[in-house]
Write a protein that binds this DNA or RNA. Structure first.
Length: 284
DNA sequence: GAATTATCTTCTGTTACTTCA
DNA sequence: CGTGAAGTAACAGAAGATAAT
């Protein structure tokens, strides 16, 4: 694709607790580079990612949670500890032992999630017989809630976080991974919609401004064409911009600023006005 | 040090399933 | 009850980053 880094960044909150950006700038998806990711994996996030009391609370209601797992359907790629293209099994490429350890941990998590589902007597057996096609199962409200909370804290997970979360929710790590993928996609989509709306409004403002200016030009031309009027006119009115507050003011000659102290300053051309400034800030 | 390869992670688009009006 | 729309879990493939060779 090439221009992936040019994609709009989803930095706005959308009620997700993500940072907001004050004014419109086509920003970029912040995709942590692998180095950063590795850095995070190697410490900071792991230290940060300790389930808080809030999560501990949520853990309590997770008892007896709907596991949403087909006991008989074997997820070949991860059950075997073999990494899928999407798998986040390993932590640092090349560190074999560490990777294997994590793969084992993940396989264990898989097995555990599966065992849990079996013990709870999943009633989703229908279609489980031999149908290798995916069986989509809804996550419970509680599971979604915890995932959502975690996503608010950080929208990507390192393998350890993923494992911990999967274990906490009795889900397969792959499910957690997929949930985060989809969640990021949804966030991005929402952001794109917001940005789109914003651009639309900018466009409308520009169109309006353009119309107004055209009209003004016409009026001025008309004035110029009627010499009598032209001769008896006051000195041409000029638009000036106060260098201090950047407000446009109509003046005849003397005062160019709303702030007399700044009158000695440079007189900036009044045009063009910043069309973006006219657009109301969008709540994000 | 540059080139190549392997591995990992994320994004994107799509499909399949669930829920609801 | 059947149906279509919307939401979303799950998947596949492409691309970028990085470490190892």
């Amino acid at each position: 694709m090439g221009g992936r880094d040019d994609e709009l960044r989803l930095t706005l909150s959308l009620g997700l607790g993500v940072t907001t950006r004050p004014s419109f700038q086509p920003t970029h998806i912040h995709r942590p580079s692998n180095s950063m990711h590795n850095h995070i994996r190697n410490g900071s996030w792991n230290e940060l990612f300790q389930f808080s009391d809030r999560n501990a609370d949520s853990r309590s209601f997770l008892r007896g949670i709907d596991v949403n797992r087909l006991p008989t359907v074997v997820d070949g790629e991860e059950e075997n500890g073999v990494s899928s293209p999407n798998s986040t099994v390993s932590s640092i490429s090349g560190k074999r032992s560490e990777r294997e350890a994590e793969a084992e941990a993940e396989a264990e998590a898989e097995a555990e999630a599966e065992r849990a589902s079996c013990s709870q007597g999943s009633d989703d057996e229908d279609g489980g017989g031999g149908d290798a096609s995916r069986k989509k199962l809804r996550l419970s409200k509680e599971q979604s809630m915890v995932l959502e909370e975690t996503f608010k804290e950080h929208n990507t997970l390192n393998p350890k976080q993923k494992l911990a979360l999967a274990k906490q929710l009795n889900l397969r790590p792959r499910q957690v991974e997929v949930w985060f993928q989809n969640r990021r996609a949804r966030t991005k989509l929402k952001q794109t919609e917001v940005d789109c709306e914003y651009l639309k409004r900018c466009c409308e403002n520009l169109t309006g401004e353009n119309r107004r200016l055209q009209k003004e030009v016409q009026e001025l031309r008309a004035l110029k064409l009627s010499p009598q009027l032209y001769m008896h006119m006051n000195p041409p009115t000029t638009l000036t911009m106060c260098p201090q507050c950047e407000r446009v003011a109509v003046s005849s000659s003397s005062s160019t600023t709303c702030h007399p102290a700044a009158a000695a300053g440079v007189q900036r051309p009044s045009m063009p006005l910043n069309p973006w400034a006219a657009v109301l800030p969008i709540e994000r």
